[in-house]
């Protein structure tokens, strides 16, 4: 399927990536090429095939539901571009 400029702008919005207007057409061309190329999978009959959920046959391990880590907000916040007290700070969300 060919993706047009508007479709690409919509996908960029979904992915929360700002794409300059001037790049939308180029990107539409590139993404369309990739999407048409992967559509070769339509040749494969998958009617009676289960989708893969785990590549290695193993049961997902479970552990006791208890806190085993934490208690060091300073370490957690050390890389934050902006923090206030023990919180990450972001632009105002609610007026």
């Amino acid at each position: 399927m060919a993706l047009d400029r508007d479709a690409v702008a919509h996908i960029a919005k979904l992915a929360r990536i700002r794409v300059p207007e001037a790049e939308l057409d180029t990107l539409a061309g590139e993404l369309s090429t990739i999407i048409s190329w992967v559509e070769q999978l339509d040749e494969v009959d998958t009617d009676a095939v289960e989708p893969m959920t785990s590549v290695v046959a193993q049961r997902l391990k479970q552990r006791e539901d208890k806190v085993t880590d934490g208690g060091y907000p300073d370490k957690i916040l050390a890389n934050a571009p902006e923090s206030v007290a023990s919180y990450f700070a972001v632009p105002k969300v609610v007026e």
Binding site: V8, I11, L14, A15, I17, R18, L31
Partner: peptide
């Protein structure tokens, strides 16, 4: 803004293909 500036063109392509 952060993701627009922070990701290079190949990563941007793949993240957008993935989102699609």
């Amino acid at each position: 803004g952060t993701r627009g500036e922070g990701f290079g063109t190949e990563v941007r392509r793949r993240v957008m293909i993935g989102a699609y």
